[in-house]
Design a protein around this nucleic acid. Structure first.
Length: 426
RNA sequence: GCCGAGGUAGGGUAGCCUGGUUAGCCCUCAGGGCUGUGGACCCUGCAGCGUGGGUUCGAAUCCCACCCUCGGCCCCA
């Protein structure tokens, strides 16, 4: 017990952290390029924040923590609600549009397996204050760029719009609560149950429309077909047009992306009001990124009604994927290990290492004072390319012997030229 | 939460069916052989049967429960 981590919560070893950092670096670069400002919110939040609109599934998978005064706190299962709260409160007077990003650990009491951990990281982008399809398209394009910059070329998108089904149901007088239940059932692929729940509220025509719609998926032409099916339903038609517009704008920039428009597509979070999407990688079932539009959440938290669209990128899933496919990640090993073979050389070794570091070259001194041969062996194991040797001879001539383990050659170089020598040979 | 397969030193494995020496091997790690070249080699050492019960003269081995890991379902990023 003492030596185990809680189930589903992982220690991350150097190799894993290296990959995770790389993903975070890319996400932060996308923030920079798109003008998103990173924020942090508490890992622990009040239960109420997630109770309203997080969706059935997530609600009962939250870690709950009773505090001393009997309030119920939870470990955040996701971050969007926190960001919406932030916009409803501290940022209520910030000029819109507001672009915010976050990288944060989240917690869900799930059954652990590949790509599903009880503690995992999300990297998100949230854009507040715009209803224009360009905003939705921007989130998709930024998502695409994250994967592109990680050299994950083979990525796919699934596009949908909860406003379509909500539109048909709404025009039949089905209330929001019932709409949520319908969509949750659809998300679970329980189509029959979905229809049972709304029961008699639907006319035959509405039921027929929905049945046809839920099976419809495909490329842009499927979207046109959906428009036909929806022609008697003005609200739903408008939602469908909105979806087509967003996808069209994405395709204008990235005509080659792999995507499917899926009209039977729903997501587990209940706060979505419009466009929704998921993104994944071809040889993996589960999605790596998901998001959509939630125009009412900020208002629900007491803020001014503020439209919003965003996404949550599964950093932990991408990390597992990159480790699995063995994606190359730059080594974090120092470039040179300086071996000392004379007590008098100790000061010189430290001095040389300092000079190298001041020039941006990572260097370590062999403080364990191994024999040269053992130092070479250690360097090989640690992936350090160069071994420097400083002893009496080098002190004499104000130089350092540098052995290149990759090219298997050795040179005696004056200390003054060492920085240039290593820089030229990296 | 459900179904399936598994758990032997830090990693990888043999032994389990058919209970019986001190649980073997490879890598890693530590110390030494070894005072400036061993991308080594040799010697020595540290460290293990997931946990708890049960059966038995005796359990890594058979039985039960639990824990954990890995798949799958469900769901999700």
């Amino acid at each position: 017990m003492l030596l185990e981590t809680p189930r589903g919560m992982d220690d991350l070893l150097p190799e894993e952290v290296r990959v995770k950092r790389k993903i975070e670096d890319v996400i932060r670069e996308v923030y920079r390029l798109y003008g998103y400002e990173e924020v942090e919110t508490p890992t622990v939040e009040y239960l109420a924040l997630f109770e309203a609109k997080s969706g059935e599934e997530i609600r009962h998978r939250m870690y709950r923590i009773p505090d001393i005064h009997g309030r119920t706190l939870v470990l955040r299962p996701e971050v969007t609600a926190s960001i919406a709260r932030l916009v409803a409160s501290k940022l209520s007077k910030a000029p819109t549009p507001i672009r915010l990003g976050y990288i944060a650990d989240c917690y869900r009491y799930d059954e652990p397996q590949w790509g599903r951990r009880r503690r995992f990281w999300h990297g998100g982008l949230e854009l507040f204050g715009c209803t224009d399809p360009m905003a939705d398209a921007e989130i998709v394009l930024a998502s695409y760029d994250v994967f592109r910059m990680l050299n994950i070329a083979d990525t796919w998108f699934r596009f949908g719009h909860v406003g379509i089904v909500r539109g048909v149901l709404g025009e039949c007088g089905v209330g929001e609560r019932l709409q949520d239940m319908f969509l949750t059932a659809i998300d679970r692929k329980q189509v029959a149950e979905a229809f049972e729940r709304v029961g008699g509220a639907l006319s035959d025509e509405a039921a027929g429309t929905l049945q046809a719609l839920l099976q419809l998926r495909g490329d842009y032409t499927a979207g046109r077909k959906a428009l036909d099916i929806l022609s008697p339903w003005p609200t739903a038609s408008k939602a469908c047009e909105n979806l087509l517009e967003i996808v069209d704008e994405v395709l204008q920039v990235r005509p080659g992306i792999r995507y499917v428009m899926d009209f039977g597509f729903a997501r587990g979070l209940e706060y979505y009001t419009g466009f929704i999407f998921e993104q994944g990688v071809s040889d993996v079932e589960i999605s790596f990124n998901g998001g959509g539009r939630y125009d009412r959440l900020v208002g629900l938290f007491g803020g001014r009604e503020t439209p919003a669209v965003g996404c949550a990128i599964g950093i932990t899933r991408i990390m597992s994927y990159l480790l699995r496919v063995g994606a190359p990640v730059e080594s974090s090993a120092p470039k040179i290990l300086i071996s000392i073979v004379s007590d008098r050389a100790r000061g010189r070794a430290l001095h040389v290492a300092t000079t190298l570091r001041e020039n941006g070259i990572p260097a370590t001194v062999d403080v364990s004072r191994k024999r040269v041969g053992d130092a070479i062996e250690l360097a090989v194991k640690k992936g350090i390319r160069y071994v420097g040797v400083i002893g009496e001879r080098e002190l004499e001539s104000d130089s350092i012997t540098v052995r290149d383990l990759e090219k298997r050659r050795q040179d005696e170089i004056s200390v003054g030229r060492l920085v240039d020598h290593l820089k030229n040979n990296l």
